[in-house]
């Protein structure tokens, strides 16, 4: 398995798509760190500063595009056959693919997260909290995410029916959209929020007034319970948690330490390493089982 893993990594590192994904990820990381950090500092919204702004999503999409294109190419060119003929089992091929795509994912995320951390740290004067733990957890989550993605890709491209493959791809897209939406709802503001209204007076001047308004995204009751459960088991949502709370303001730079502590406890509850490992093993097991049953063309 080591040999296939190395050969796959070499293939990734020689692929222009990989470097394109790195550039996209790096640029979005720099933007996130410098531009967003600067403006959030200006707006005094330190506590809500997260790395899962839309620019962080670019890194995920760059990663997904890179891995799916490279994996898809592996199947399209038929090079997976030479590995099976060389005496490797389907399980070994699958695990090697999942491991290689996880390493690629870590690389792509790293070039996004590092400039973001530097930027946010510089502009918002935030201090890293338990950074080692967070990096380890982020690694787990990205590997977990890529395992899940490898499973989806492997299944989708080994199905014979184009219609089935297309439906599967569609389900995956919906899943991604749902996962991100879920993250949004989970982290949504309270039921009521302060909204700024603009009013044009008779003399042509604009008057701004602030008033409480109902938050249309607020989820309550049974729906909230479902969202919580899904958020707890979904690696994408969990990834959002890690990135959202990678920095907590220190006491000197932020007065709202109570709120920071509250979010920190939430973060720790969601990112349970045991759960992550169990989830990773489960995804890998499903992936191997599905892949082994497929006929390779």
């Amino acid at each position: 398995m080591k040999n296939i893993f190395i050969s796959r990594l070499v293939k990734y590192f020689r692929s222009p798509i990989f470097y394109l994904a790195l550039i996209v990820s790096l640029v979005s990381g720099i933007y996130n760190g410098v531009y967003v950090g600067y403006f959030k500092a200006e707006m005094d919204q330190m506590i809500y500063c997260t790395m899962d702004d839309m620019w962080f999503l670019l890194a995920i999409w760059a990663d997904v595009v890179c891995v799916s294109l490279c994996l898809g190419r592996e199947f399209h060119d038929g090079t997976i056959r030479s590995k099976l003929i060389a005496g490797y089992t389907k399980a070994q091929v699958y695990l090697a693919e999942a491991a290689a795509s996880s390493v690629v994912t870590v690389c792509i995320f790293a070039v996004n997260i590092i400039p973001t951390m530097i930027g946010l740290g510089y502009f918002l004067k935030l201090i890293p909290l338990s950074m080692t733990l967070k990096i380890v957890l982020t690694l787990f989550l990205t590997i977990e995410l890529m395992n899940m993605f490898t499973l989806f890709v492997c299944f989708a491209i080994t199905v014979r029916s184009f219609g089935l493959a297309a439906s599967f791809a569609l389900v995956f897209v919906f899943y991604m959209v749902y996962a991100f939406t879920n993250g949004y709802y989970y982290n949504t503001a309270p039921q009521e929020e302060i909204v700024t209204f603009q009013e044009i007076l008779d003399d042509g001047t604009v008057r701004e007034t602030e008033a409480p308004a109902v938050n249309s995204y607020y989820v309550d009751g049974a729906a909230k319970t479902l969202v919580n459960i899904e958020h707890y088991i979904n690696p994408i949502s969990s990834l959002g948690d890690v990135t959202s709370y990678s920095y907590i303001p220190d006491k000197e730079s932020c007065d709202e330490t109570d709120l920071a502590d509250a979010r920190l406890s939430e973060f720790n509850m969601n990112i349970d390493p045991v759960r992550l490992i169990v989830w990773l093993v489960l995804i890998s097991f499903i992936g191997i089982s599905v892949f082994r049953r497929r006929n390779i063309r």
């Binding site: 293939k11 060119d77 090079t79 997976i80 056959r81 030479s82 099976l84 003929i85 005496g87 063309r297």
Partner: peptide
Amino acid sequence: RRRMGAVVETPSVYLD
């Protein structure tokens, strides 16, 4: 299988 080489249908080559 290590003592075997095969070309099945289309050649398994990386086109890039």
